[in-house]
């Protein structure tokens, strides 16, 4: 009995770290890019968005896992959407009531958590197939992985774009210390590269990040490691996904009428015709 308990605990921890590191939703799976770009203007916003998403992800994973034998397969996606949307609404109301500053900073991106690839991706690929406890840890790991990534991107953008970190003028403090050491009467002032907090900066930071990831992937391939993504909803990453991201979550993937795989085939065919 204690053996099975131990095993369960071990696999839960494994699932947890899988989401946090090995299959980090932002850096490795490149899921949920819209909020990643939009709310990471400062570290605190990234942290808030990450924790909000984590809360929704954990709750929806648990509920979907509890209901996995009850929800009929054919209507599972709408059912998941309703569950996720309910939790998003609850979290939104709680934020509005208790952390109004974060609520106004994140704005429209809180309700848009509903269409975040990560949540439905995890519901579809993990919670609907696994028992409650692993699903809980999967949600927690994935959510915290997302939080870490958003906070890191937010910190970089805030540091370069405003010279601050979590609202504290770090760079200017350091520069003031340096100038007092070298004996300058006027401290050197940091001129913020404000484009990094604006929209274009988000694209540049993400471009640098993806390039880095490509490089790591290539090195791993050269060493002969398998870099295929494992058991995630959008099996390849969103950004290189030719069927416009995670749309296939919402339609039946297995060749049902109107499914994306069919649409893609049709698109390929029509392209082919035009080329002929």
């Amino acid at each position: 009995m204690s053996d099975t308990n131990n095993e369960a605990r071990q696999s839960s921890m494994e699932v947890f770290f899988n989401g946090l590191v090995k299959e980090n939703p932002t850096f490795v799976l490149a899921l949920g890019m819209c909020p990643t770009l939009a709310v990471t203007t400062s570290a605190i916003n990234g942290l808030g968005m990450g924790l909000t998403t984590t809360a929704v992800l954990v709750l929806s994973n648990v509920i979907i896992s509890l209901l996995r034998h009850i929800i009929p397969n054919r209507v599972r996606i709408p059912a998941f959407i309703v569950i996720v949307a309910s939790f998003v609404t609850m979290v939104e109301l709680l934020l509005e009531g208790f952390i109004p500053s974060l609520y106004s900073a994140l704005g429209i991106y809180i309700p848009l958590i509903v269409v975040n690839c990560i949540i439905l991706g995890r519901a579809e690929s993990f919670a609907s197939k696994n028992p409650v406890i692993p699903s809980f840890f999967d949600g927690l790991g994935m959510g915290l992985g997302f939080t870490v990534a958003l906070t890191a991107i937010g910190a970089v953008r805030e540091l370069i774009g405003a010279g601050e970190l979590f609202g504290a003028p770090v760079i200017n403090n350091i520069l003031a210390a340096i100038s007092s050491i070298i004996g300058r009467s006027e401290p050197i002032e940091y001129v913020p590269v404000s484009i990094f907090v604006l929209a274009p900066g988000a694209f540049f930071v993400l471009a640098a990040l993806t390039a880095l990831q490509n490089r790591v992937k290539r090195k791993m391939q050269e060493k002969g490691k398998n870099v295929d993504k494992i058991q995630s909803g959008c099996s390849s990453d969103c950004t290189s996904c030719s069927d416009s991201g995670c749309a296939h979550r919402f339609v039946d993937v297995n060749g049902a009428p109107g499914s994306v795989s069919l649409a893609k085939n049709a698109a390929d065919k029509s392209n082919g015709k035009k080329e002929e």
């Binding site: 959407i81 269409v115 069927d243 416009s244 749309a247 919402f250 339609v251 109107g258 499914s259 994306v260 649409a263 049709a266 698109a267 029509s270």
Partner: peptide, 9 residues
């Protein structure tokens, strides 16, 4: 062809 792709864009 593009409609299913925007279902919940």
């Amino acid at each position: 062809v593009y409609l299913p792709l925007i279902t919940t864009n």
